[in-house]
């Protein structure tokens, strides 16, 4: 994923807190994935307006971690979601 690209959750895909399992899940029609704390933190920044570069910069400040590491891990994470149609990207 390039820094200028804008990740966005497609219609019908949303974050949901599962009170039974006490975990965050990403729900899509008839499908779901579970998220860990970092995955939830990444998706919480996805608003369909800010670019991948802006999001990873914010996460680097929030986690006090190198932005290069954040970009690498986030790109893999969001790429995996995109491949399974849990995420769209606009540019």
């Amino acid at each position: 994923m390039e820094a200028e690209e804008i990740p966005v959750l497609p219609r019908g895909v949303r974050l949901h807190y599962d009170h039974i399992r006490e975990i965050w899940v990403l729900l899509a029609p008839e499908r779901a994935v579970t998220l860990d704390a970092v995955g939830h933190a990444i998706l919480s920044e996805v608003d369909g307006e800010r670019s991948f570069g802006e999001i990873t910069q914010k996460l680097a400040e929030k986690f006090n971690a190198p932005v290069d590491l954040i970009m690498q891990d986030s790109a893999g994470f969001l790429g995996a979601l995109r491949a399974r149609r849990f995420l769209d990207v606009s540019s």
């Binding site: 779901a32 970092v38 986690f63 971690a65 590491l69 954040i70 893999g76 995996a80």
Partner: peptide
């Protein structure tokens, strides 16, 4: 709030690891 490589598990019928360390 420590950064770790994020993990995704897809729920099918069971949790199946989809991405992560």
């Amino acid at each position: 709030m420590a950064w770790n490589k994020p993990v995704i598990r897809e729920i099918e019928c069971m949790e199946i690891n989809m991405y992560g360390p």
